[in-house]
């Protein structure tokens, strides 16, 4: 090996990590099936519920009209975080993390590769389900138009911030913290008002809810579906919060990584 320096940022290293996970996905049909299974189950359940409630009258029927859009956006948030976290957990499960940590792979490249995999998993898992929603219930998710881009970007940014923080906690505390990866997003389900307006919450809880970027996305989605209004103010608020969240998550991840080096936990990964 020559003494030439290694570049401080390399797309080739990110590509190598993406290929590592792509090889894995390709070799394991249960992993591929799992990507699409839960979004499909959720879509069917909420789709049939929406169909049933649409036959009712009044506000209930109106509220139900947002269920399918809500569940598909929720899946972007939830699956985005899982897609990110899974890529990290795969390294823990395969006891490969030390190999990566002593390689020239920089933390930012590692994180970007997990972001890329989150997108790939999302495309495999959620995109086909949006077309199945059209087939089963006549709901055109893509009909949300350009607003969908704003919803999508904001939800993904939140999912990556949460995924990053979970990865840091697992890095520092080992697989004992793995459960957090699976469950943390469910705290967002009631607080971000996926299926009901923010006004439903007690006033004190509304303040907390508005600090969570997805709340603005789900509120914005309801405004679009029910009133045909795109709330750019809500998207900007979500983006501002996401920038703060991503910054804090990145800082937290680096702190937790340094802490894991102090604790020596990288040498006993998996325990």
């Amino acid at each position: 090996m020559s003494a030439a320096t290694s570049p401080s940022f390399s797309f080739s290293r990110i590509f190598a990590m993406v290929m590592r996970h792509w090889y894995l996905l390709r070799s394991s049909w249960p992993r591929l099936l799992e990507l699409i299974y839960w979004p499909l189950v959720q879509m069917l359940m909420w789709g049939f519920l929406q169909s049933f409630m649409a036959k009712q009258t009044g506000a209930l029927a109106m509220a139900a009209g947002t269920f399918l859009a809500a569940v598909l956006l929720w899946d972007i948030l939830f699956r985005g975080q899982l897609g990110f976290s899974f890529s990290f957990l795969e390294e823990m499960w395969s006891r490969n993390l030390a190999n990566l940590m002593i390689s020239p792979l920089r933390p930012i490249e590692f994180v970007l590769s997990m972001i890329a995999m989150s997108l790939i998993r999302l495309v495999i898992g959620v995109v086909p389900v949006t077309f199945l929603a059209m087939f089963f219930f006549g709901f055109n998710f893509w009909g949300l138009g350009l607003a969908l881009g704003a919803f999508f970007a904001n939800l993904l940014l939140t999912s990556w911030a949460i995924g990053l923080l979970c990865a840091g906690l697992v890095l520092r505390n080992g697989l004992g913290a793995e459960g957090l990866t699976w469950s943390i997003m469910f705290l967002f389900l009631p607080l971000t008002c996926v299926y009901y307006p923010v006004a439903t919450l007690p006033v004190w809880l509304q303040y907390i809810s508005w600090m969570l970027p997805p709340t603005a996305v789900f509120e914005g989605m309801r405004a679009l579906v029910l009133e045909n209004v795109f709330r750019a103010d809500l998207m900007l608020w979500a983006l501002t919060l996401n920038i703060v969240w991503i910054t804090l998550a990145g800082w937290g991840f680096m702190k937790l990584m340094h802490s894991s080096k102090r604790m020596g936990s990288l040498l006993s990964v998996g325990e």
């Binding site: 290694s6 570049p7 390399s10 080739s12 290293r13 590509f15 190598a16 990590m17 290929m19 590592r20 090889y23 190999n99 990566l100 390689s103 020239p104 792979l105």
Partner: peptide
């Protein structure tokens, strides 16, 4: 080996 070859440039 391809993955690690990529990581090590």
């Amino acid at each position: 080996l391809t993955v690690f070859g990529g990581l090590y440039g």
